[in-house]
């Protein structure tokens, strides 16, 4: 729930938007302001409130986050999503919520966001490929939405599905994985306050290549668990199939918690390349649960994390 954390920070403590916008966008903004007399909606902002769950680490600039993405529906290259994701039309987006819920049905983005307070969550983001960023997401806790649909007592897992639109997603012509992309969480993971559904980035609507209009963010797990452009959320009593696990179960487990001591078969997970550091940057040691152990370690009490990787 938003607003449960109190602190003495004011809006005057925040980084001015001009400091994080890159120069091109500032120039474009000035141009728009000069031309139209007003700054226009691009600079209006979502007005997300601060959260104590945010890290104090410096976020990556917007252009890092929007130009370096894994979103295979738009191609397997890191720059492919930035190039191709404009083809995705998110107008009239609908999310089907079904399975073991009291109120199954189809939700529009307006339905989902009605009465929701958006929060800024600045999270560390650790990719399974051993690189990392710090990203200022805007969103709300998944548990808020689940509370509204009413989770039935038999539900143990939450399954998610990404849109599959061959006309708008050139990458799905290639059978890299079995489309559509699917992911899942255990119910207690889904209910953890760190788990959010993100609809924004840097206080602006989330760009298509980052999973517009709504995506999951689970900061203590490898990035591929944080499924993008969600069209379906199902509550189930069985562990749902997950895309990378189906593609290569030896390399990608259902849990996929960030863990420096459990290596990916093809590379070590002990350290990570921090994106934006340049070619001479030192690697950084990777933290268990990506540094979120205080909030999530008890979810895995008594579990062998090398077995349930």
């Amino acid at each position: 729930m938003a607003g449960r954390w109190k602190n003495d920070l004011n809006w005057s403590d925040t980084t001015p938007k001009a400091a994080w916008l890159n120069r091109r966008q500032i120039m474009a903004g000035i141009g728009a302001a000069a031309f139209g007399g007003i700054a226009g909606p691009a600079l209006a902002g979502l007005g997300a409130v601060k959260s104590d769950f945010s890290t104090v680490e410096e976020p990556n600039p917007l252009d890092h986050i929007t130009s370096y993405c894994n979103y295979y529906e738009f191609g397997t290259g890191k720059e492919d999503p930035a190039r191709n994701a404009h083809m995705l039309n998110t107008d009239g987006w609908q999310v089907e919520i079904d399975g073991l819920v009291d109120k199954p049905g189809t939700w529009t983005m307006d339905d989902i966001l009605a009465g929701t307070t958006l929060e800024e969550r600045i999270y560390r983001f650790r990719c399974v490929e051993a690189w990392s960023m710090v990203i200022p997401w805007v969103g709300f806790e998944l548990s808020d939405l689940l509370a509204r649909v009413g989770v039935q007592s038999g539900a143990k897992y939450v399954a998610f599905e990404t849109a599959l639109r061959p006309d708008e997603m050139p990458g799905v012509r290639s059978p890299v994985i079995d489309w559509p992309y699917v992911e899942g969480l255990r119910l207690d993971e889904a209910m953890n306050p760190l788990t959010i559904l993100a609809t924004g980035l840097y206080d602006e609507p989330i760009p298509n290549q980052n999973g517009a209009p709504i995506r999951l963010v689970v900061p203590w797990k490898y990035g591929f668990k944080s499924i993008k452009s969600i069209v379906r959320i199902s509550l189930t009593d069985k562990e749902p199939p997950t895309s990378w696990n189906k593609t290569n179960g030896r390399e990608y487990g259902f849990y996929s918690n960030v863990n420096p001591t459990v290596d990916h078969p093809r590379w070590s997970q002990a350290s990570e390349r921090v994106i934006g550091g340049g070619i001479l940057a030192k690697r950084k040691p990777t933290l268990l649960f990506n540094g979120y152990g205080e909030q999530v370690a008890d979810l895995y009490d008594g579990m062998d994390l090398a077995k349930f990787y």
């Binding site: 370096y68 690189w131 390349r273 994106i275 934006g276 070619i279």
Partner: peptide, 18 residues
């Protein structure tokens, strides 16, 4: 390639690109 990597011409993860 190395010149581009040092001057920011290879994107945000130049080591992998090189």
């Amino acid at each position: 390639l190395f010149w581009q990597g040092l001057t920011g011409g290879l994107g945000v993860d130049p080591t992998k690109v090189i």
